[in-house]
Amino acid sequence: MNTTNTQKNSAIPDNHLPWDIEITPPKFLSPLKWNEFFRYKNLLGLLVYRDFVVYYKQTILGPLWWLLQPVITSGVFVIFFGFILKVPMDGGTPLMLFFLSGLTLWFYFSNSLNQIANLFASNGSMFEKVYFPRLIIPISQLLSNLMKLTLELIFLAIVYTVLCFQGAQVRPTWWLLLSPIIIFYLAVLALGFGLLFNSLTYKYKDLSLTLPFIIQIGMFTSSVIHPVSAIPKEILYYLYFNPVIPAIELFRFMLTGQGTIYPDQIVTGIVVTVVLLLLGIMSFSYTEKRFIDTI
């Protein structure tokens, strides 16, 4: 073990072992290292657990807090849109069921989007100090939100059952078995859009401040609080630009058998989502190597 002055000499024959880590200047797009991601799956589990538990630490109601966001919002909407503004609804869907189903999915999407779109801003201090695959953080957020969503869906099922016993005119369809696909679709959409938004905005605070508005406008334009059938014919085309609409309307259709589905709208939604995911991951792989220098 001598400590002689090892002059730069790249001609040294490589040892028997291959190199484990290579650090090079960032290329425009470097491929994501999925195998490395796999090595950190322990961390993924720990982060999901942390996000889920920390939210309601030191509260009396505990995990019940997860339910309150959609429940309270649904209650407010039932009063405002049902009794005061009287938005036209499809058939016999009870208002509470209508709002709760839409908002449950919407909050899954918007909460995930909000977290992922602020990825660098909220985790920068950690990213500055230690290396791990950065994508672990957004994926863990999607998963811990999924646990929360599961609780909310159980609650939704309870509300549904009660409403049916009270004589509501709706019954679930067999399509409901496909609803995990919708949740997966929303997760992918939140990931793609969130990563893209994060990459575009971490440098410019002006842009990142637009996020709350985007989410608020999104809630009103994603058929969360009105059925697609209530949209005037003249502006129906805007459905094609918002990939959240088909997800929520389809979910309601599976749940109640009522809703207006345009197949071409589903196709455009999927195309938009896939494009956003690709753009999101590409922009992320570009910025993750550079943002520490600019933050």
């Binding site: 484990d20 290579e22 090079t24 200047p25 550079r290």
Partner: peptide, 11 residues
């Protein structure tokens, strides 16, 4: 944590 502008590191 950060990437170099030039050069190569192997470990």
């Amino acid at each position: 944590i950060v990437t170099p502008e030039k050069g190569l590191i192997r470990m």
